[in-house]
Design a protein around this nucleic acid. Sequence first.
DNA 1: GTCCATGTTCTTTA
DNA 2: CTAAAGAACATGGA
Length: 267
Amino acid sequence: MPELPEVQTVVNTLAPRLRGSKIRKTILRRDDIVTPTGTDVVRRLTGRTIQDIRRRAKRIVFDLDGDEEFYIHLGMTGRLTFADDPSVQPAKHTHLILQTTAGEVRFVDPRRFGGVFWANSTHDPTLGPEPLTLRLKELQQALGKTARPIKSALLDQRLIAGLGNIYVDESLFVAGIHPLALANQLSNVDVARLLKAIKKVLKKALRHRGSTLRDYVDAQGGKGAFQKLHNVYDRAEQPCRKCDEKIIRIVMGGRSTCFCPKCQPTT
DNA sequence: GTCCATGTTCTTTA
DNA sequence: CTAAAGAACATGGA
């Protein structure tokens, strides 16, 4: 579900309520979603104050009192939502429940690609720069070093952190760049257009509270609306909104990749 | 039954 | 050695 706009929207709907609250009770219903394995999150979380909640890459970072932090990653199917009525039985695949002075929050994740991570995100070398504040020089440098197709390079969180399959495809369309174009063969002009496209797409997606294709919801259960504005993602076989050409779907590294062959020519 | 899925990490290959 | 490609993870919906 979650790429930068979706994760940010969860944080935006979670933080105002949860900031400053205290965790009264922690219920861990399965412990194999916790990393590192064996971390006693119940003991570590109960009684703690949540000072802030923020996003880093696709992570929802909880700042706790005592200068400690952990994060929740939503993986593909994770949800982090307030329970309107805490007396209602938790949904299937509810793995963690935080009962706080500001309400009850539940982490649900059927596929369990997400999880709870007791780790610091501040100096994590596996996370590249944030796209919204990324500068052209940095991106040029990062892309110049790799001979992979631009699509896979942009999915690499060490190069740029927060994009996923949807927003890479959408950004490449706006930039008019073919997904198979080699990263280090893009001109400076191409990269400049690409960075502008990435920021533009992400900001627009944020305004529309992310994309709900299947079951993504924010912390209050609200769906995103940006999927209605997708140019290419999940639009294979449909006409391009710009030129009417048929949108193509190919598979790259096991991920479906959608693009307009006319607006995104090979070069 | 088949194929597909908004992500990450580990393993294999070149 | 490193970079890139591929497989694996687990569940559910069409």
